[in-house]
């Protein structure tokens, strides 16, 4: 039983990272119907930036946090200006391909600047694990889960009460009408990209603190796809929950079937789920008018 519980907890900890990335996918998909294939790479880039900051400032927590925020705003603005805005009015497929190209680009540039070896994040405290009902938890993992919950609540409140969030939901429902109502779509895109970069950056720094920082951070972005699909691409909180489910499923598959199947368990799950519910568990069904 404690083996099972340990697997579930480890799954939740990884799943929280997937969930954060999936929230980023969902926020961008909601406003622009585009899947951002560069989400994992953005997470890696901001992770590396804050790693460099931490290296030079003796891992001072406020400065690292500041670097994540500044990095996210910078990356979000740059992407919106040079990738998204020129492609407005083009088919969605073109913009998706742009984000794929962006992913390849970021990966290459990060490889050029920081090299391909993984590093330990400076100041990543590996405190004594806490034992509860036979489950071993690292303090940082608990912190990660707390951040995850806080982000979920924050994003929910933002979409529910903030005027920009409401405009986002309006645009998701009908972009033409919300344009007519005076919503500035380009400003909305900017906000969406910054928020999703910010969430990705936070996930990146936490991931780097728990494990390490290296080029394989980009793969986490790909492994978060099943989470976003499972929850439904246009449902932000559904995607966040999907992350937890995928994390737990991966760990259970790795623990009970064979460790090799951990990496693909999530993908198998979405192949099956999509056959039954083609729009994800919480996604909105597309009803087409002919």
């Amino acid at each position: 039983m404690s083996y099972f519980l340990n697997l579930v907890f480890a799954g939740l900890a990884v799943g929280a990272i997937y969930g954060m990335l999936a929230m980023g996918y969902a926020i961008i998909y909601k406003v622009s119907r585009v899947v951002n294939f560069a989400q994992g790479e953005i997470m890696m880039l901001i992770g590396y930036i804050s790693y460099s900051v931490a290296l030079r400032t003796d891992a001072s927590a406020p400065l690292v946090m500041l670097s994540v925020i500044a990095g996210a705003i910078g990356v979000g603005l740059l992407i919106e200006r040079f990738i998204v805005r020129p492609m407005l009015g083009q088919p969605v497929f073109s913009l998706v391909m742009m984000t794929i190209a962006l992913a390849v680009m970021i990966r290459a540039v990060v490889g050029l600047i920081w090299g391909l070896d993984p590093y330990r994040f400076p100041g990543s405290a590996t405190g004594a694990p806490i034992e509860l009902f036979g489950v071993y938890m690292q303090p940082i993992q608990l912190f990660l889960l707390a951040v995850y919950v806080a982000l979920c609540v924050g994003v929910w409140a933002f979409l529910r009460f903030n005027i920009v969030g409401i405009a986002m939901r309006a645009t998701a429902t009908d972009s033409t009408v919300s344009l007519l109502m005076g919503v500035s779509v380009s400003r909305l895109y900017r906000v969406a990209w910054i928020i999703s970069a910010l969430i990705a950056g936070i996930a990146g720094v936490l991931f780097a603190n728990i494990y390490h920082i290296g080029p394989d951070l980009a793969h986490v972005g790909i492994r978060a796809f099943p989470a976003a699909i499972l929850g439904g691409l246009d449902s932000v909180l559904g995607s966040a929950l999907g992350g937890l489910i995928i994390g737990v499923v991966e760990n259970l598959a790795g623990g009970y079937i064979a460790s090799a199947y951990k990496e693909i368990a999530g993908f198998v799950v979405i192949l099956v789920i999509l056959m039954i519910r083609p729009y994800g568990l919480f996604g909105q069904k597309d009803i087409e008018r002919v």
């Binding site: 998909y29 585009v34 899947v35 969605v92 497929f93 998706v96 790909i222 796809f225 099943p226 699909i229 691409l233 090799a260 990496e263 693909i264 993908f267 198998v268 979405i270 192949l271 999509l274 056959m275 083609p278 729009y279 597309d286």
Partner: peptide, 26 residues
């Protein structure tokens, strides 16, 4: 191909991506 009958656009793109990852892993 069978999921592609029900999936549209990006959902399909990600399914094919998942397929190739599974193939290489197997």
């Amino acid at each position: 191909g069978v999921p592609s009958l029900r999936l549209k656009g990006l959902y399909l793109a990600i399914t094919t991506l998942a397929f190739s990852i599974i193939v290489v892993h197997l």
